[in-house]
Nucleic acid binder design. Structure first.
Lengths: 258, 258
DNA sequence: TCGGGACCTATGGTCTGACCATACTGTGGT
DNA sequence: ACCACAGTATGGTCAGACCATAGGTCCCGA
């Protein structure tokens, strides 16, 4: 039979659900303020600590930001920072070996190739300006750190060509995750001429609207930067399923706290 | 000048950082237990509430799970549930209009096409069995809910063909996000014959190893399911950048709480 | 010897109240 | 008009208490 544990909901989960409902029903938008923690606790008949835990969750997911003090900017304000949340998530799961660098790099390759292939009509002079500016700064970079900083700007701009904010945010997080690796790789390669040639080739292909050439250039570039991508070894690791690695939990439902 | 606000770190952020450091340095793996909340608070010289907020963040990101009571399973245990975290993130940001359904559906298209194109060597008999089983159950489904459930299994299996756990977890979350939409779409279409034909075409292409045909079949199928995908309207919305929509914060760094 | 029930206890979950740090707001003096 | 100071609302933190949960322990009876 389909018996399920009763699964009492914790107080802070209720608070999250009610805040989420308010967002949907009251049409709250980014920039709107939530009531203060004490007021929210009183209205929801829970302790302030439960409210705080709920807000902490929402802050972690990048939908609220808290600010102490008084005035129009104080309190819990609705925001939209998915990239920060994604970056935290990736960093922790890579640290736990729940995700591998190869998987992260591969995802990055997928997004950038998709972006250039589906950039038709999305490539603006502004994008090309940003790409050129990043190239110029990479040329002038005096350290690996600085080089990687502008390299990130270059690749993030490519992701934005997709016109898809989810992909751009994911790209942001992926970059942050490989940041340390990238700096070490640049320091190891020392001479960055091949990398710069790759970048220029990518830029030329995008500027001329040659999607397939751009995709190929990106593939070559990322394969050079992440040698792991060359041979697709099996990703055997701790996490075997999208969720609940190892734990033989009963219902492995797609949704969680919702 | 490059002046920056001092940005005092909050106590719970320190707790997170120290737990993260322990994971890296002590080589903790999924299944290992963390000290109890009271013990952790005493060792870190912070209040128990700060420890709890830190654990709440880690739980939200899908790296720990807490269990009350006694015994080997009680306490905070390291886990690997990225999909649950991603699902929460997407649901909230879609609710806030920080992300649109079009962007979610488009990302799904990208992943599934990538998966079938890069499935070479990853397609196992087990995968094909799962796909066939899902097809059979979809055929026998008595309600839209049930149909969508097995449809999800079908598409998640496709994502797993990529051999990339990050993509599989993301796919899981994307499916959960469009769940409601999908059920309504199936109820609206009523007759699910076209959808079933799509699925069978996808299966045949995968089984015969025809990557391009499979990608085309997926494109046709998802375009039918999400008419929004047809004309790529501009994604103008509240969130203009991958992060910090509207808020003119000083440093828009890729990383956040790290 | 074995089974079972009552009790023990470690763990997370929650609430209350207090205090601090922060930063705007208002007020009064110059 | 300006400025300094007190007021106050806000989040951040801590301490302590109590409840709920659930495995462990011990003792008694069969």
């Amino acid at each position: 039979m389909g018996w399920e544990p009763v699964r009492r909901t914790r107080a802070f989960e209720d608070v999250i659900a009610q805040i989420e409902r308010r967002i949907a029903e009251d049409g709250l938008v980014v920039g709107d303020r939530l009531p203060g923690e004490r007021q929210l606790a009183e209205q929801l008949r829970v302790g302030r600590s439960s409210v705080r835990e709920a807000l902490r969750v929402l802050e972690t997911l990048g939908v609220v930001a808290s600010q102490a003090g008084r005035g129009p900017d104080a309190g819990a304000v609705l925001t939209a920072r998915p990239a920060a949340a994604l970056a935290d998530l990736l960093r922790l799961h890579v640290g736990l070996s729940s995700l591998s660098m190869r998987e992260v790099a591969e995802t990055r390759m997928m997004i950038e190739q998709w972006a250039v292939r589906h950039a038709a009509g999305n490539v603006t002079p502004g994008h090309l300006d940003r790409l050129r500016a990043a190239l110029a700064r990479m040329d002038r970079a005096g350290s690996a750190d600085e080089f990687v900083l502008h390299d990130a700007e270059f690749h993030l701009t490519i992701a934005e060509l997709s016109g898809n904010r989810l992909l751009a945010a994911t790209m942001h997080a992926l970059r942050a995750t490989v940041q340390r690796h990238a700096v070490e790789a640049v320091e190891r390669l020392g001479v960055t001429d091949p990398l710069m040639d790759d970048h220029r080739r990518i830029y030329e292909a995008i500027a001329s609207g040659d999607a397939e050439e751009a995709a190929a250039a990106i593939a070559d570039h990322l394969t050079r930067a992440y040698p792991d991508l060359r041979d697709p070894a099996d990703p055997t690791g701790p996490a075997d399923a999208p969720d609940s690695a190892g734990t033989p939990g009963p219902a492995d439902a797609p949704d969680s706290a919702g």
